[in-house]
Amino acid sequence: MYFKNLLVAVDGSDHAMKALELAVQLEDKFDSNLHILSVYRHYGMFESSHSLVRPRQELAGPDEALRQIAQEIVDMAAKRAEELGATGIKKVVKRGKAARTILEYSKDKGIDCIVMGKRGIGDGGGGLLGSTSNRVATLAHCTCITVK
């Protein structure tokens, strides 16, 4: 098996950072391109009233604040990947529902393997496997590796 394009989805969680470490090892072994993706989602006022995410209007709007946080997570992950020896890193921030956005990006960019943590910071009721990682592994067109 050969992986030309690897995607690691990161959200700042410990599991995501472990997934990043594995993705860097695979990137080195297969001389792959490494895509580091963080997905954010701005909840509308109705949705935010039903979540722990609270928009902060004083920060140039909630959408921009969340995009900035996602960018910081990608930048931190890319820095760590470089420390581990990765080259050819593509940093990506997208807005949308996590699983759907990961799947669409992976298909659009010809990703051969998606590496994810088993649970992220947003997983509340995913059972043994986080809901995002479970959905991606089930619906992806390519190989998926879930890291504990």
Rank of each mutant, 00 (worst) to 15 (best):
G130N: 07
R56Q: 11
A70P: 03
G117I: 06
H35R: 03
Q68A: 12
G125A: 15
M45W: 03
I111R: 01
I102D: 03
Y105R: 04
I102F: 09
A86I: 07
K107P: 00
N33A: 09
R41A: 09
G44T: 13
H141F: 04
H15E: 11
K29E: 10
A140M: 10
L20Q: 02
G117W: 03
H35Y: 14
E83C: 06
N33W: 04
M17P: 01
G124R: 13
I69V: 14
S51E: 07
K109N: 14
G126E: 02
V8S: 12
R135P: 03
K109Q: 15
E21K: 14
V147F: 06
L84M: 15
E104F: 02
L22H: 08
I89K: 05
N33V: 11
I73M: 07
A23V: 09
A137H: 02
V136E: 00
I121H: 07
L139C: 05
I145F: 08
M76P: 00
Q71D: 13
G44V: 00
K90M: 10
D123H: 12
A86F: 11
L103W: 02
M45S: 11
Y105F: 15
K97I: 13
L26G: 02
L139K: 06
L20H: 10
H50Q: 13
A23H: 04
L128M: 15
G125Q: 13
A86R: 01
L66Q: 03
A137Y: 01
L6C: 08
H35W: 01
V39S: 06
